[in-house]
């Protein structure tokens, strides 16, 4: 029997994403992958997956899905949203916490209220073919993920596991994602295409996320950045987080589906550790940038990986002992076990 999640309503823009497609940028193939890779990793870890497993990226408002398999373990991490089981009868479901649903359950993810996106991971992952080594959806190219596109009503997302495994649920009590403002930026590689005043402006003034934001890039509103040598360069490679500035002087930060090459000068680049923090901002949010260096960027990246190592360590403790260790929680602020089968939240089954 086929195990699937059946799509009743697709949500605003729901796609399958993993951590991206590498090695083909020389052929113009974008990296893609989760805009908020930290949230994707957390959602995966909570259901016991490898952090690189493909999951659903939900932009702004989520889908309504029906469980068409014996049972499935799910976790939602990222922006806050009301998750509700609609049928057989209504029940509120948690975020940053794994839980199991059963055949016939219909559930929905409501509007994401505090961030631009959230992630839904299923234990075992989705059973989908890879495109060029990745499950990430690149909708412009029509490849990856589920048929190369965002979800649509009546899609059937095949699952690897026919039923949830027998294990304790996990709960991330802190319920917050790593990363905080200001967003750190390394100047260059075309900082010399801008006036000194433009660089001062970037690092001292406030910018706002405009409505023109998609998986490819985020256009910002705020003070204009003055070019010193025109606004066309001979196209060269872009990086994730590159801040390109076209003729109108307003910066665009390149995100997951960024074009591999570009012809606008790049005043700087958001460091990789801060890219998820930036990408999760909603239109209207304010941003401040601070000047950083390659060394600081490398150190920040290492710190982020250490954070995930501690996270994984806490998951292991919670999983084997099945006991919440309050000391570890207070000192580490990471993960606690256990919502067992006796939990009142599950008593209606």
């Amino acid at each position: 029997m086929i195990s699937t999640l059946r799509v009743h309503k697709p949500g605003l823009h729901t796609t399958i994403q993993d951590l991206g497609r590498y090695g083909l940028q020389s052929m113009g193939v974008p990296v893609s992958g989760a805009l908020d890779s930290s949230a994707l990793r957390i959602a995966n870890l909570l259901v016991g997956n490898e952090p690189t497993t493909a999951a659903l990226e939900v932009l702004a408002a989520g889908p309504t899905l029906e469980v068409n398999t014996e049972s499935v373990r799910i976790a939602v991490a990222g922006g806050n949203a009301l998750i509700e089981r609609l049928s057989p009868y209504p029940r509120r479901l948690p975020t940053f916490e794994s839980f199991c649903l059963h055949r016939g359950d219909v559930f929905c993810i409501g509007p994401v209220t505090d961030m631009a996106m959230t992630y839904l991971a299923v234990e075992g992952g989705f059973d989908l073919p890879t495109a060029m080594g990745s499950h990430s959806t690149y909708t412009r190219g029509g490849f990856g993920g589920f048929k190369g596109r965002q979800l649509a009503s009546d899609d059937e997302l095949s699952l690897i596991l026919p039923a949830a495994t027998d294990r304790d649920e996990l709960r991330f009590v802190e319920r917050t994602l790593p990363g905080e403002p200001p967003i750190r930026v390394i100047p260059g590689p075309q900082a010399d295409f801008f006036t000194a005043a433009a660089l001062d402006t970037l690092f001292s003034r406030e910018y706002t996320v405009s409505a023109a934001v998609d998986r490819m890039g985020m256009r910002l509103n705020g003070p204009q950045l003055e070019h010193a040598r025109g606004f066309n360069i001979t196209s060269d490679g872009t990086a994730p987080g590159s801040i390109q500035v076209p003729g109108d002087g307003l910066p665009i930060v390149l995100l997951a589906d960024r074009q591999t090459t570009g012809g606008y000068p790049k005043i700087g680049c958001v460091i990789s550790a801060d890219l998820p923090t930036l990408a999760r901002l909603r239109p209207g949010s304010t941003i401040r940038f601070s000047k950083s260096t390659l060394e600081q960027a490398t150190e920040a990246r290492r710190e982020r990986e250490n954070w995930f190592a501690r996270f994984l360590d806490q998951i292991k403790r919670a999983g084997t002992s099945g006991i919440i260790d309050p000391t570890a929680l207070q000192t580490q602020n990471l993960v606690s076990g256990v919502v067992g089968p006796d939990d009142p939240a599950d008593s209606d089954r």
Partner: peptide, 14 residues
């Protein structure tokens, strides 16, 4: 090295 991007006049090395 995860990616190499040759362009008109430069090589980007990821």
């Amino acid at each position: 090295i995860t990616d190499l991007v040759p362009t008109f006049r430069s090589l980007a090395i990821h």
